[in-house]
Each structure stands twice: as structure tokens, then as C-alpha cells.
Design a protein around this nucleic acid. Structure first.
Lengths: 420, 420
DNA sequence: ATGAAAGCGCTAACAT
DNA sequence: ATGTTAGCGCTTTCAT
């Protein structure tokens, strides 16, 4: 079967899509063009080529307007609401129009092969004039991968999209998408606790699983489907799974050391009741730190990560017993201004009789009075390290599942510095 | 070329991927299998089929474990770090293994065609046992579309990913992804102010453009590429562009009416200096409302949408002249607790001598003392209406570009209710 | 009821 | 230097 006859039978309309035809006569009769091409195959091809040559000079006027033909074509069919959508221009259409082969045009457009400058230019020009855009799916099929990565968080599976409302995940999500895109990968958003059915139809090269919870099946499902997984340290050792993580022990250590240096002897910890590795490690690190310093283990668990439950836990933490705490570390995404207000309502002066620090990426912390000390988990760094690793695995065939620990950053502000 | 010979030359390794082989002997010599299949073509195919039949009984134990073979296969090659990745199981592999044709297996798996129950079951069972997963890209190519939609916001193009940190966009993004996914479309995140180069390689069926700014090229570029655009009302009338929007006039009207009913006569507006349709309309509606009520037009523009600039604008707004305002409407994504604190620092009692309302999706508003009145722009409703429209356009070929106006919702809380 | 073959649009060996 | 051809993996007429 020749290229020319590909248009017969299966897709008789295609001839009408040849750009030169609309560009040629302008108002010479849209219906006439359609009729002509529908009847004679060879004639359609011939007319298209001829018209294209004529239109070439005209197209020279606007260099960058790849959409010129498309717009013209659309404008030529104003009232036709029920008309079938114009078929897209394919490589073969450009090739025929330019009087070249698919190979040549492909090489010209991709900058591959050895072509004479004139031919390359002719191919490119024709493609531009016709508004040709390569079919991404066909390229992907050919390439064997889609350069698409999934992004899913483990926490908050009962409210599958609220993770975006947490400053930490918002940042992590953005940074992941940004870094990936810079490497040529697009990110698709999946709901927390995604099921097979939600990603099975997607050509995912890999999936990033942020903070998986202890009992979710996501990681296993993905690995069973032989999709590389990039997650936190909890996946360490699983074949096909890779990790990057923050140093949870350092989170606790750095902050409590800082409190201690300021004279605090009764620091209290507020942490959500979560089964992510991070929260479990924070808890363990806290106990260890207190034991090592001979201080009481004061902590309150928030029922959930939201502002409401965390503020409530803060109130509980600050109200305990006759011996009130003298420092508060909130390891949960709560709004710093709200935490500060809560402490005040209970009667604390910050930092007078309570040092305050929050693990948070929320920029409101710098706008309170006093500004609130925060500990950043460096979502941008996590994303960068993760995507770098991902690219290495996908493109250099890296097999090692070793991961990386990203250091956290303590931003000391007035809320945790004893005055005087 | 027969099906059997497809494995020759091009992909000599494939024979080794037949599941039965790994399941068969366990430690009988992994290298031997590789060598065997690499040398003899006919032998490889034959061995694979035979081994598969043997493994069939074994696989009957676990019904739902689609990944059983995959895991077994991986476990069988523990030390081989440099081994080429195991090729994926294709439809033809399943067909050969089951002794059926591609057609039959495809029909069996998709529930199409008329097949005998036994054959259908056999095909399905074999596919499951082999861990077959259809190649999404091939399906997309066949189907002519990828069920993939892009999502990009217009605002904040200088910091292309911070939009996720705004509660409104976080919600809109999540709701868009959720609604789309429920309809079978996945959402890819694009940076604010995306260029052609960032989405050109993606098989996007459509793109959602949230709040385009006046001068950005995104919408034009997409339309020129004949990609359907779903955006706000600012794209009204453009062929190929569809819209859903919030009623910006109602935002101002409802809130100022509410203030007015509470006795406020000097309401002041804080709005960011942005060229989105929403902000421009808010500004216009404000002037109109003030004129209609014979009240002075008090407003302050924040340089940018962030917390810092908006709080600064609030301070300016509340400090103006000898006649202090008696109500404040913040139409910008600022943290309600911060706005409240700012008002207090300047010396206002809320709601005693200042009524306060914020256009915000930030849930911290309910946790302040007093809770802050908010006006929700209903991102969930916007997303739902938008995606519903998108699906209608993409799947029912809807051509009308008419859009929909989503009503806003005023949540009156103590911050805007005069006491007594 | 089942299978053979065409072809979605593209790229890359392999001619010429 | 340019063209011909064979697939990527799947679904779908159309025969049988």
C-alpha cells in the first residue's frame, strides 16, 4: 500500500485537511473543496501539493505563527456547528505537501540524520505552515516510555486531596513537578491512597509516593505492577523502590537542643497520631532525647494533622499539670499564628514563659508578632534529590536502592529566643 | 512474519520472560535459561509454552495476586545488578501462552466480543498469572486520545509553583484532579505561565487555565495548537475556549451589603494589583457599589497576592486619614489570623469598631477568636462545572462555548457581626 | 466463536 | 542525501 492510497476508504475526509486548500482561495467555496476531495483521491493529493507551493510565499510573512493555518482553517468554517472536527495534520501530510518522505521530514524536524540545508528548511517550513504538531502518544509508543510520573501521598487517605492544602505537601508537590519538568517528565496528580484502578490506565514511568502510611497498599501495588517507586525511607530494601527522606531524628534533636540552650527544662511535643515513618521516628527520637537529657517525656498526640485537632492538642499540652511546660515543639502542619494565639489565650507570654517552634513550611510564621521559629523539612531539597535519583534510575538504569537523607533547617526567630 | 518469529533478532531476551520458566525450576540455573533462549528461537518459544502449562496449577492458589509472577521473577535474579530490565508481558505473550490469538485475549480482557466462557476464563487467568498489564500508550494511540488534561494557572507566573500554596488554588487544583479522575481523566500539573515547550510533548486532550492574566500567551498558544481550553470568563467568545467562572460582582455585593446592614458606612477594600479578570471585576464592582450607595470609594491595592504585601496593604487601609474605616474586605489570599492580628496591632477591636471579612478558602478562619467571616469562591463547584463541561466537549463533541457562573458563598462569622 | 490482518502516527534500521 | 520498510502494542473490522 502506497502512502498516497492511505487516505482511501478509511479516512476519506483527510484530503480536505491539506492546508494549501484553505489558504488558496479563501472564500472560493468551502463546500466545493470538501466535495472535490471526497470524490477523487489522486486529485485531492495533487491539488494539495499545488496549493501548498502557492501558499508558501504567503506564509513567509509570519515566521513564528505555527497556528496560522489552523486559525485560517477554523475561520473558514464559521457557522458549521455540527461539522466533524478537523483531523490533525500528520507527519505524512507534511511529507506529501513538501514532496518528501516521512523519514526526511522526521529527521528535519528532529535535527537528526544528514540532510541538505535546503531540504531541512523546506520540511520545517512546510510543517510550520501546516501547523504540524507531532503526536505525542505515537512518539511515546515508539520511545517505549511516556516521561510521565505519578505523584501520590500516603497520608490523609480519607480526604484524598486535602494534602495540597498543607504547606509542606503543597511545596513538595510543586517542587516535584518543577524538578521533574526540568528533566522532561510531567507529573500527574493522584489522590491520597490511590487504588490500582486510578492509575492503571496511565503510562506511568514511575510513581513518587510521599509519606506512605504503615498499612497502605500503594507501594506494594506499584511494585507488583513493576512500576519503580520513589518514596521515603520506609521502603528501604524493597526491590524496585528507592528513597529520599528527611532526618527525623535531627528535627527533634536540633530543636530540643536549641530549647535546652535557651534554658528550657520542660519542653513538650505535639505530634499527630500518624503511621508515617516520619512521625513514628519523631516520637522515638523525642523519647531518646528526653532520656539522654534526664528530662520528662512530655508529649501530646493530635488526633489528626488538621489545624483544629492540632490546636486542641496544643491546648492540652499547655494546660498539663501544675508544672507547666516552658517550651513547645509542634511537629504538625498547624498554622503558626493560630498556635501562637492559642498559647496566649491560655495565658502564656511567648517567648517570655514559653519558647515556641513549629515544624512548618508556612510562611505566615515570619509575619506574626513575635515571628515564630520554624523547622523546615526542605521539601524542595527532598523533591530535587528524589527526582535526580528517579532520573538516574530511569535513564541510566541505576539499580541500587540506596537513598539519601536531606538535612532539615532550623530558622530561629523571636518566638524561641529568651529575652535579655 | 509469524507471531512466533517476532521474538527473533529484535528482542532475543523475550523468551526468558515467559513466567513459567522462573516459576519452574527455582534454582535450576538462571544463567542456563538465558543462554538457552538466546541461542535457539524455536526452542525458546516451545520451552516457554511448556513451562507455562506446568506453572498453571501452581498459580491457581492465589486468585487476586496479579503481581505474583512479577515478584517471583524479580526474586529469582537477586545478585544481578547489571541485568537488563525484564521486558514487559505483552498481549501477544499472553495469547501465545494461552494458545489463543491476540484478538481473543483482547476481547476476553475487555469484555467485548462473543467468546465462550471457558475461553474467556482461560485468557483472563493466563493474563493474571503472567502479570499482564496493558500498555497504556498503545491503547491511547489506538483510541486517538490520552485522557490527559493539563492544568495551569495564569497568576504568579514569576513564581510558577507557589500557586499551590494558596488555599484557593490548592483547593481548585485538588478538586479539578478529583473530578477529572472520576471521569477518567488524569491531570498533569504545569507551572504558572507555561511555555509551549513545557506541554508540547504531552498528549493533552485539553488544558484547564485557571485565572489567566491579561498579557499571558498561554491561551493563545493552546488554541493555536488546537487544544481545547477551559478557563474563566475572560476567554469568552474565543473559538475552542470554554469557561466557568465565579460571580465577582456578587462577591463585592454580598459582602458590602452585609457590612452595610450591620451599620458600616466606611468599608474599605484591599485587593491585589492583578490583571486577572476576577480582580479587575472586583474593582469595578466595588466602584459601582459605592456609587450606588453614595459612599466613598475606599480601596488599597496590594502589590502582590502574598501574605506580606497584603498585610502591608491592610495596615495602609486601616490607617488612612482621620476618618478610620469601619469595615474591611480583603479580596486576596491572606491568612485570616494574620489579618486579624494586623487590625488589632493598629488598635482596632474586631468586630467592635471594625467588621472584617476575607475572600478566602483558608480554614484557619474558623479557629481564630473571633472567627473570621469568609467568602468562598467555591473552587470545588468551579472545578466540577468546568470538568463537566470539558467532558461534554471532549466526549459529546459539544461545540458551544457558553459557560457557567458559579455562585459564591458568604460564611458570616463573628468578625463581621456587630455585637449587642 | 475465533483468528488474521490492518493500522493508530511515529522513528530508526536499512537500503539505495 | 533521501526513501522504503518494519515495527512500538493495542483494538477492530472482516473473514472463516
Amino acid at each position: 500500500m502506497t502512502e498516497a492510497s492511505e487516505h482511501d476508504g478509511a479516512t476519506p475526509e483527510r484530503g480536505a485537511a491539506v492546508p494549501g486548500q484553505d489558504g488558496h482561495g479563501g472564500g472560493t467555496g468551502d463546500a466545493g473543496v470538501g466535495t472535490r476531495t471526497r470524490s477523487g483521491t489522486g486529485a485531492g493529493a495533487g491539488a494539495g501539493t499545488g496549493a501548498g507551493d502557492g501558499a508558501e510565499a504567503e506564509a513567509g510573512t509570519g515566521a513564528g505563527d505555527a497556528g496560522a493555518w489552523a486559525e485560517r482553517s477554523g475561520a473558514a468554517r464559521p457557522g458549521r456547528a455540527a461539522a466533524p472536527p478537523v483531523p490533525r495534520v500528520r507527519l505524512v501530510d507534511v511529507a506529501r505537501e513538501a514532496g518528501l518522505s516521512k523519514t526526511t521530514v522526521s529527521a528535519a524536524l528532529n535535527g537528526t540524520g544528514r540532510l541538505s540545508p535546503e531540504v531541512r528548511e523546506k520540511a520545517r517550513d512546510t510543517a510550520r505552515r501546516m501547523g504540524y504538531r507531532p503526536n505525542a502518544t505515537a512518539r511515546q509508543l515508539r520511545a517505549g516510555r511516556a516521561r510521565l510520573i505519578g505523584y501520590v501521598v500516603g497520608e490523609l487517605a480519607d480526604t484524598p486531596w486535602t494534602f495540597l492544602e498543607s504547606p509542606y505537601f503543597a511545596r513538595l508537590t510543586g517542587a516535584t513537578a518543577a524538578t521533574a519538568l526540568a528533566r522532561g517528565y510531567a507529573v500527574v496528580l493522584l489522590p491520597a491512597g490511590s487504588l490500582q484502578s486510578e492509575w492503571a490506565a496511565l503510562p506511568l514511568d514511575a510513581v513518587v509516593v510521599a509519606d506512605p502510611v504503615a498499612d497502605d497498599r500503594i507501594v506494594e501495588d506499584l511494585l507488583a505492577a513493576r512500576i519503580p517507586v520513589f518514596s521515603d525511607r520506609s521502603v528501604e530494601g524493597r526491590p524496585g523502590a528507592h528513597w529520599v527522606d528527611v532526618d527525623a531524628t535531627a528535627v527533634v534533636g536540633q530543636t530540643l537542643d536549641h530549647f535546652h540552650a535557651q534554658g528550657a527544662r520542660r519542653p513538650v511535643l505535639v505530634v499527630p497520631d500518624s503511621t508515617t515513618r516520619f512521625h513514628r521516628e519523631v516520637d522515638a527520637a523525642h523519647r531518646a532525647w528526653c532520656a539522654a537529657h534526664g528530662l520528662p517525656v512530655l508529649s501530646v498526640r493530635a488526633a489528626e494533622p488538621g489545624n483544629g485537632p492540632v490546636i486542641q492538642a496544643v491546648e492540652t499540652a499547655l494546660g498539663v499539670g501544675p508544672d507547666r511546660p516552658d517550651a513547645l515543639l509542634v511537629v504538625a502542619e498547624a498554622s503558626p499564628p493560630l498556635v501562637l494565639d492559642a498559647a496566649r489565650r491560655i495565658g502564656y507570654d511567648v517567648p517570655g514563659d514559653l519558647l515556641l517552634a513549629c515544624v512548618s513550611e508556612d510562611e505566615t510564621a515570619v509575619h506574626t508578632e513575635p515571628p515564630v521559629t520554624t523547622l523546615s523539612l526542605r521539601p524542595d531539597a527532598v523533591a530535587e534529590a528524589g527526582i535526580a535519583h528517579l532520573v538516574a534510575v530511569l535513564e541510566q538504569g541505576l539499580r541500587e536502592t540506596g537513598g539519601a537523607l536531606v538535612p532539615v533547617r532550623l530558622d530561629v526567630r523571636a518566638s524561641s529566643v529568651r529575652r535579655g
